[in-house]
């Protein structure tokens, strides 16, 4: 059984590195394969092989990737387009889950407490004056916010804060912020706080979310 197999697909070529083969085996077989292709007459028509390297259920270490790239670069006809693996590390998986889920959060954030999350948050708890809730995603609040909210932490201005924040002290989105003192009366449960084209934080109506942030609107199922 070959450790490295070349497959043609509609969109290009896949280089499959068998997970059952050892890495040394793969390197030997890959060299053989490339060498064979270099001299094979039928490959002469094709001048440019763009390869998707599939590693099956194997995660290549950076130095292993490097070794494969070096080997392939010896054959100018071939370029590596990308590496793809059927598996991911637990750390990556957790991070993905954190990023993709909406965290439902129902707790009290007190003065001086500074909570940081990844992903979107549906907030149902209480933030006391001086408490701070940060996330790199969006914040939807149905809770009682007297403290500080920060969506898109630290610098993503495409995020929004939706919900009643008229009692909040500050709202931050990315690097933009507003102090609620002056704007508080225009804020209600149907308010979207977002960063506009002039990079200023402003408030809009939930009904206008499609205009305000089309990407989010589509992602959450709006039409």
């Amino acid at each position: 059984m070959q450790g490295a197999v070349l497959r043609g697909t509609q969109s290009g070529y896949e280089l499959v590195l068998r997970q059952s083969a050892s890495f040394d085996q793969i390197m030997t077989d890959l060299r053989d394969l490339l060498e064979k292709l270099r001299v094979a007459p039928e490959s002469e028509a094709v001048t440019n092989f763009s390869l998707d390297v599939l590693t099956e259920n194997r995660l290549l270490q950076p130095d292993e990737k490097k070794a494969i790239e070096t080997l392939v670069s010896e054959y100018p006809k071939f370029q590596i387009h990308k590496f793809e693996s059927g598996v991911m590390t637990k750390a990556d998986a957790n991070e993905l889950r954190e990023r993709e889920t909406v965290h439902v959060l129902s707790r009290t954030i007190r003065n001086g407490q500074d909570l940081e999350y990844k992903g979107d948050i549906l907030f149902l708890g209480i933030i006391h004056e001086g408490g701070k809730l940060k996330t790199n995603g969006n914040i939807y609040t149905m809770g009682n916010v007297h403290g500080i909210l920060q969506a898109g932490f630290p610098d993503d201005e495409s995020k929004v804060v939706i919900g009643d924040t008229h009692d909040a002290q500050q709202i931050h989105i990315g690097e933009q912020f507003t102090i609620l003192d002056d704007d508080a009366d225009q804020v209600n449960a149907q308010t979207v706080a977002y960063v506009n084209d002039l990079h200023a934080l402003s408030f809009g109506k939930l009904a206008n979310l499609k205009k305000i942030n089309p990407k989010l609107f589509n992602q959450i199922g709006g039409l």
Partner: peptide
């Protein structure tokens, strides 16, 4: 009250 809030948070 604000400082008490902070302390309750620390006790949590």
């Amino acid at each position: 009250v604000r400082d008490a809030d902070r302390v309750v948070g620390l006790l949590e």
